[in-house]
Design a protein around this nucleic acid. Structure first.
Length: 521
RNA sequence: GGCGCUUUCGUCUAGCGGCUAGGACACAUGCCUCUCACGCAUGGAACACGAGUUCGAUUCUCGUAGGCGCUACCA
C-alpha cells in the first residue's frame, strides 16, 4: 500500500432529509478520518435531477453542524478538489466517458426505456449484458455511419459499460474480507444518462473519488453488490493502483418487524429517524428530529456509534475524542443492527445526568411557557424563577447523584408540575391514592390542618412544621405523610412533605388539603 | 427467481479451539424510604440447525434454514 494521506468522503444525494443511517455512515467516516489525521470530504451527489429536493443540502449541513461532525472540505467547506457538487462537474464526466468510449470499454446504446421494458416483458430475467447486447440497438451492433447519423439527427442515447463476461472480480472489504463475484452476472450498467445528460452514480462516484484522491470508501452495505462494478471501472480507467479500499457497513434495521429502518417506523413507534425536524416542501409533511425531541447531540452520536461497532470492551459512554482514538473498522459487526431507540433514550438520560441541571433551564422555560406558566402580573417573574430554582433543586439533589429518571428535559413537567399547579382532580383509580386514602383519612387531614393552622405564615418553615407535626404524630400515633402527599401532589410523587409544604406556603398548603378533603371525603 | 452479505440472551454486543459463554438496554425482585425517582444488590434470559475437521468446537469448513441487501437512463 502506498502511504497516501487518508481521505474519505460522505456523499449524500439531496433528495430529502438525512436519514439516521446516513448519519452513522458519516460518523464512521469522520472517526476514521480523524483517527488517521486525514480529511473528510462533503460531496453532493445530485446526478438525479428528477429527485432533487430544495433545502435538503442546507438541512444536511445544519444537521452535521449540530451533531459535531466536521468536514475538512466540500460543498460549503471549501477545498481545492472542487467543485464538490456533481451537477457542477458535467464537463469532467463527459471527458472521462469519452475516454471509456475511445478505448472500447464502453459503448453507445439507443434503446429507449419503452424498448427495454418491452424486452423485459418478452424475456424472463432479461439483463443487458454480453449475452443480449448483440440483439439490441447499440454501437456494437450498428455500423459507425448508422450510429453517427442517429446522433446527428438528435436521437437520444446512453453510454453503457461493456462488461467482459466470465471473470472473477475480487473486492477486498475491510469489514467483510474478500468478496468474489463473477462478472457474468453483472449487467452493462448505464454510465451516462440521456434524460438529464448526467452520469449515473457509478461513473460519477469513481471519477470523483479518483480525482478527489479518496483512499477509503466507507458506505452502507446496500452498495456491496455494485462494488465489483466499481472495481471494474477503476480497472477500465487504469486507476487500479490508487483504487480506494472498501468498507461496507451493516444496515440499520427496523426496531420491530422485518426490513431496514425507514421513515415510517419513526411515525409508527414514536421516535425520530432524522437528526433535525424536516418540513417537506412538496407535501408539507413534517417529520420529527432528534434535536427537537430534546436529544443531546453527544448522546445521539454515542448511541449511533455503538450500533455496529464497539471498542472491544464494556465501555459505552464515550466522548467524540475517545471514539476517534478507539474506532476500528475491522471491529465493526457484519450483520444488520436493529435500531433500538429505547437504548437511545438511555444514552440521552446518561448525558443529561452528566450536565449541570442549570443547563436545562432554557428548555425548561419553554416547557413552562407551553404549559401556561409564565410571568404574569399575578405570578411575578421572581416567583416563577424561585419555583424553577426549587424544581431544579428537587431534580438535581445531592450533587447530580439523585437526578430523576428522565430521558429528556420535557419529562420534567409531569414530575414537578405540582410545584406550579394544584391537582385539579384526585384520581381514585390511582394506586397510591386508593392505598393511602381510606375511611377516616379526611378526618385525619382535618386534624393536620388544625395542627398546621397554629403556625403563622412566618413559622411555616420546614423545621417548625416538623416539630409540630411530629409531636402530634407521636401523641396520636398518626402517620399522615402519604395522605398529605395525596392532598398536595395528587399522587405518590414529590419531595419531602415538609419541604414541599414550606415551599407552597401556608395558604396554598391548606387550600389544597381542604380541596382534597372535599373531593375525596 | 438470480447474485451477494449475514446468523451469540427480547435488543445492542464481547468472545478470535478448552470460559460456570461476559457487559449494556429492557424486564422482574430486594434493599434504601413519608411517596416517586436515583442508587445499590440480585434474578430470568443466547451460541439457528445438520454434517464434517479436531483429543476438544460458540469459535474452522461445507450444507440447510432464517434474516438483510442488490437486481432502474435512483442513489
Amino acid at each position: 500500500m502506498t502511504e497516501r494521506r487518508v481521505r474519505v468522503r460522505f456523499a449524500p444525494s439531496p433528495t430529502g432529509p438525512l436519514h439516521i443511517g446516513g448519519v452513522r455512515t458519516a460518523l464512521y467516516n469522520y472517526l476514521f478520518a480523524k483517527q488517521h489525521g486525514g480529511d473528510l470530504i462533503f460531496r453532493i451527489e445530485d446526478t438525479d435531477s428528477t429527485r432533487f429536493v430544495p433545502g435538503a443540502e442546507e438541512y444536511i449541513i445544519e444537521a452535521f453542524k449540530w451533531l459535531g461532525i466536521k468536514f475538512d472540505e466540500g460543498v460549503s467547506f471549501g477545498g481545492n478538489h472542487g467543485p464538490y457538487r456533481q451537477s457542477e462537474r458535467r464537463d469532467i464526466y463527459k471527458q472521462y466517458v469519452q475516454q471509456l468510449l475511445d478505448n472500447g470499454k464502453a459503448y453507445i446504446a439507443f434503446d429507449t426505456p419503452e424498448e427495454l421494458d418491452a424486452k423485459r416483458a418478452e424475456i424472463e430475467n432479461f439483463q443487458y449484458d454480453a449475452s443480449t447486447r448483440g440483439m439490441m440497438r447499440n454501437s456494437l451492433t450498428m455500423s459507425k455511419d448508422e450510429v453517427d447519423s442517429l446522433i446527428a439527427n438528435g436521437h437520444q442515447y446512453v453510454v453503457r459499460f461493456k462488461i467482459e463476461p466470465g471473470r472473477d472480480v475480487r473486492v477486498d472489504d475491510i469489514i467483510r474480507g474478500e468478496v468474489n463475484i463473477n462478472s457474468s452476472i453483472l449487467d452493462d450498467k448505464v454510465l451516462f444518462k440521456s434524460a438529464d445528460q448526467l452520469p449515473t452514480y457509478h461513473l460519477a462516484n469513481i471519477v470523483d473519488d479518483h480525482l478527489m484522491e479518496v483512499t477509503h470508501v466507507i458506505r452502507g452495505e446496500e452498495w456491496l453488490p455494485s462494488a465489483p462494478l466499481h472495481v471494474l471501472l477503476y480497472e477500465a480507467f487504469g486507476w487500479s493502483d490508487t483504487m480506494p479500499r472498501f468498507a461496507h457497513l451493516p444496515l440499520l434495521l427496523k426496531p420491530v418487524g422485518n426490513g431496514k429502518l425507514s421513515k415510517r417506523d419513526g411515525d409508527k413507534l414514536g421516535f425520530p429517524v432524522f437528526p433535525l425536524e424536516w418540513h417537506d416542501p412538496r407535501s408539507g409533511e413534517m417529520s420529527s428530529g432528534y434535536r427537537e425531541q430534546g436529544y443531546l447531540p453527544e448522546a445521539v452520536v454515542n448511541f449511533l456509534a455503538l450500533l455496529g461497532w464497539n471498542p472491544g470492551n464494556d465501555q459505552e459512554i464515550m466522548t467524540m475524542d475517545e471514539m476517534i482514538r478507539l474506532f476500528d473498522l475491522s471491529k465493526c459487526s457484519k450483520a444488520g443492527a436493529r435500531f433500538d431507540y429505547v437504548k437511545g433514550m438511555w444514552f440521552n438520560h446518561q448525558y443529561l445526568m452528566m450536565r449541570d441541571a442549570m443547563e436545562w433551564t432554557p428548555e425548561f422555560d419553554r416547557i413552562l411557557k407551553a404549559e401556561g406558566i409564565e410571568s404574569t402580573p399575578e405570578r411575578e417573574a421572581q416567583v416563577v424563577e424561585m419555583m424553577k430554582q426549587k424544581v431544579i433543586e428537587y431534580v438535581d439533589k445531592e450533587g447530580n447523584k439523585k437526578k430523576r429518571n428522565i430521558s429528556f428535559v420535557s419529562d420534567l413537567w409531569p414530575l414537578c408540575k405540582f410545584f406550579f399547579i394544584a391537582p385539579e382532580t384526585y384520581d381514585i383509580e390511582d394506586k397510591f391514592v386508593r392505598k393511602n386514602w381510606k375511611e377516616g383519612t379526611a378526618l385525619e387531614m382535618d386534624e393536620l390542618i388544625g395542627v398546621l393552622s397554629t403556625l403563622d405564615d412566618r413559622e411555616f418553615t420546614i423545621a417548625e412544621m416538623k416539630d409540630m407535626v411530629e409531636a402530634w404524630c407521636e401523641a396520636t400515633g398518626r402517620k399522615p405523610w402519604n395522605a398529605w402527599r395525596v392532598c398536595l401532589v395528587g399522587t405518590g410523587q414529590g419531595p419531602d412533605m415538609y419541604e414541599l409544604a414550606a415551599f407552597l406556603g401556608k395558604a396554598e398548603t391548606i387550600r389544597r388539603m381542604n380541596r382534597a378533603i372535599d373531593i375525596l371525603k
